[in-house]
Simulated assay, not measured.
Amino acid sequence: MKTLGTCVWQMCNHRQDLWRYFTFAHDLCNAATERDLYATGQLADCCTPSLDPVTVPAAERITVPRRPLPYDVYVDGTRYRGEVNVHEVLCHAIDEGDLPVMPAEFGLVVPLLLRDGRITAEAFLRYMDRVYCDHFARSCRAVTWPASHRTTARPLRLG
């Protein structure tokens, strides 16, 4: 259980500077999304010796079964609602109560709001500072408690 808790803490903990680094480079996300990230290839074929990305010729594409996941989050007192397309397994886990929606909001939705310019870097970091302990606790409950004891109540107003 200690190992699991440590791994979940690392995944949940913004204080490892993951989110701070993300705020520094979030404006570069568009450069990454312009590339076909679903093309398959050997890592050595995906970049030059100086690590500049290249397009892999005749690469096959992988498919990811996706469906919309609705979200409803508050950041700095403003409500953001919508949908984001995610892997259908994630949607199923949330629908069945096996995983709270908060990890998807914390790790995907709120970073996308920053990337898309809907929130500021300051608002993003304030949100991460306020919710990381609750996010960790909910993530631990999701892997240790029976579904009948978990809460997936939404929306969670923290900002």
Rank of each mutant, 00 (worst) to 15 (best):
R66I: 03
P103Q: 09
D116W: 07
P146Q: 03
C12G: 03
E34H: 02
G41Q: 09
R66K: 05
Y132A: 12
R157K: 15
N85S: 11
A59H: 07
C12V: 04
A121N: 10
H26E: 12
Y127M: 04
M102V: 13
L18V: 08
P53C: 06
E60H: 15
G77H: 10
R61V: 11
D36V: 15
P70I: 00
V73D: 00
C12N: 01
R130V: 11
E60C: 11
A31S: 08
D134I: 04
C46M: 15
R79K: 08
G41S: 11
R67N: 04
W145D: 00
T120N: 07
R15K: 08
L112S: 02
C29M: 10
R130I: 13
A137S: 15
M11L: 13
R150V: 02
T23H: 03
T3E: 12
Y71F: 06
H149L: 06
R15G: 06
Y127E: 01
T120K: 11
T33W: 14
T55A: 15
P53D: 08
G41A: 09
D52G: 04
F22L: 12
E34I: 00
E34M: 03
C29D: 05
P100M: 11
P53R: 09
M102T: 09
R61I: 14
L125Q: 14
G5V: 04
R81E: 00
Y71P: 04
T63P: 04
F106S: 02
A104N: 06
V143G: 02
C12S: 05
L43R: 01
A44E: 13
C133Y: 07
R157Q: 10
G77Q: 10
C91R: 11
P57Y: 04
D36R: 14
D98Q: 14
S139Y: 00
A123E: 08
H135R: 08
H14I: 00
P155D: 01
C133Q: 13
R115P: 03
V84H: 06
D36F: 15
R81H: 03
D72L: 10
D72Y: 09
P103A: 12
C91N: 13
F136T: 07
P49D: 04
E34P: 00
Y74A: 01
V54S: 06
P111L: 05
L37F: 11
G77P: 15
T151I: 13
N30D: 11
M1A: 13
C140M: 08
D45H: 15
E83W: 07
R35S: 10
R20A: 00
V75F: 05
S50A: 14
P103R: 09
G97Q: 07
I94W: 15
G107Y: 00
S139A: 09
A25K: 13
L4E: 00
L125N: 10
A32Q: 09
T6K: 13
G117N: 03
A31D: 07
I62T: 10
R126F: 08
R157P: 02
D95H: 12
E96M: 07
M11K: 10
A39K: 04
E105A: 02
V75E: 00
R138K: 15
H26K: 01
A137V: 06
T78N: 13
V89Y: 11
G107P: 01
T78E: 13
A31Y: 01
V84K: 01
P53E: 11
R67Q: 08
M128D: 02
H14W: 01
P146C: 07
A93L: 14
A58W: 14
P146G: 08
A32W: 11
E122Y: 13
R141T: 05
Y38S: 04
V89P: 01
